[in-house]
């Protein structure tokens, strides 16, 4: 997430700094924005609102749909037909991710080793989290 922050355009970086300066307002905005983000990303990508989106690195396929929530690639249990070992009716998330990522100009991104997930951010807006970094209150909630 830090790498994403460094590469943001100046206007967005400024907006992120603003949110960090007023974290309470930032959290409120995040809570207000999350349902809209949820609606669009659920419809388009089957998003699970982990709050730390890596869709662009996984061929626009949400890795949190994997029953093992694997964020670094497929497990060794993928069936011969490419379906999931846990849900035989479902195509493996990572078989889809690998196939789709070939169409993306930034396809090497799928090879990046992901940081462990911050489970506190589940349900919050990943876009605002990317702009501002995680804004947690004194009880560690987004």
């Amino acid at each position: 997430m830090t790498t994403a922050l460094e590469n943001l355009p100046p206007a967005i970086a400024w907006f992120g700094r603003l949110l960090r300066r007023y974290p309470r307002a930032g959290r409120q905005l995040n809570r207000a924005a999350a349902p809209f983000e949820n609606l669009t990303k659920v419809l388009m990508f089957g998003c699970n609102m982990c709050g730390q989106c890596i869709l662009h690195e996984t061929g626009m396929t949400c890795p949190m749909n994997c029953p093992k929530t694997l964020r670094d690639g497929p497990c060794g249990g993928v069936r011969m037909n490419g379906h999931c070992e846990v849900k035989p009716e479902m195509m493996c998330v990572w078989v889809k991710a690998e196939r789709r990522s070939r169409w993306l100009p930034w396809r090497e991104e799928i090879l990046r080793v992901q940081e462990p997930l911050d489970w506190r951010l589940k349900g919050s807006s990943a876009i605002l989290n990317m702009f501002s970094g995680p804004l947690l209150d004194e009880r560690g909630r987004p």
């Binding site: 029953p67 093992k68 964020r71 992901q114």
Partner: peptide, 12 residues
């Protein structure tokens, strides 16, 4: 199931 981290993150 737990699956908090994955095998590659565990290596790390």
């Amino acid at each position: 199931p737990v699956y908090d981290v994955d095998s590659i993150q565990l290596v790390a």
